[in-house]
């Protein structure tokens, strides 16, 4: 079990305490291509934050590869994120004043990889995602699909255990969305990467091999989706 959650609870204490996650139990194996689906307010973003060690949980247990993620210092959390998790966000989250290749280099920079090596590795991933000619361009000179490819390169470059994608197609048109999802699928199949996609679009979810439904802070149904027909959308390349 690569990812193990046992009775994870999370409450936001505001003016009105909000119990967002009410005992999540979940296991994800290495090499799985999973989607977490839920409507807004279902707790899926919170779950994603916890999975990505971006946020703490109140009780329960969360383990990555057997390592307990609990009460980590900020720098330890940063180190784990850097080494174990690659993020893909809806809004790409690229740094606007850095070129594509510099963006991809950044996680390696924080890992302390030497300048030369860093550039080499980043270029390798950029090339693999077909962006060789765009390596020196800034994010605002690229299309949404290209930006998301850069973001995926950034996520991949540290060779993480888990890729966490938060609405990876949220800002893309349907054609590009298909391309990106195909790319993720290919990465999962060819490189045996563990990919978790958080989405509210059933079409996107349908691309994955397993769909975990979350509703009101608890895990609902888990659909095996090997044949990619669990959803009405998503078959035959129709996403939106």
């Amino acid at each position: 079990m690569l990812i193990e959650l046992k009775d994870v609870n999370k409450t936001y204490f505001g003016a009105q305490p909000l119990h967002v996650l009410k005992g999540i139990n979940l296991g994800i194996e290495r090499g799985e291509f999973v989607s977490i689906m839920g409507s807004s307010g279902s707790g899926k973003s919170t779950l994603l934050n916890i999975l990505g060690i971006l946020d703490n949980y109140d009780s329960g247990e969360y383990r990555i590869g057997g390592k307990l993620i609990w009460d980590l210092s900020e720098s330890k959390a940063a180190e784990y994120r850097n080494k174990m998790i690659g993020f893909i966000f809806q809004s790409y989250n690229l740094i606007s004043f850095k070129t594509a290749v510099e963006n991809v280099e950044l996680p390696l920079f924080y890992q302390g990889v030497s300048r030369h090596k860093r550039h080499e590795m980043a270029m390798e991933y950029i090339e693999r995602l077909g962006l060789k000619d765009w390596a020196g361009h800034y994010p605002n000179e690229m299309s949404g699909g290209q930006k998301q490819r850069v973001a995926i390169s950034t996520a991949l470059v540290t060779k993480p255990d888990i890729i966490l994608a938060d609405e990876p197609t949220g800002a893309l048109d349907s054609k590009t969305s298909v391309e990106i999802m195909d790319l993720l699928k290919e990465l999962n199949e060819r490189e045996k990467l563990t990919i978790i996609v958080v989405t509210h679009e059933s079409g996107v979810a349908n691309y994955t091999n397993k769909i975990i439904h979350i509703k009101d802070g608890v895990i609902g149904q888990i659909d095996e989706n090997r044949s990619h027909d669990a959803m009405r959308f998503g078959s035959e390349g129709v996403l939106k």
Partner: peptide, 15 residues
């Protein structure tokens, strides 16, 4: 946002 991105991809608070 930028700082958040940096933190997410592994920058420690010290950095």
């Amino acid at each position: 946002t930028e700082i958040g991105i940096r933190r997410a991809i592994g920058a420690t608070p010290r950095m």
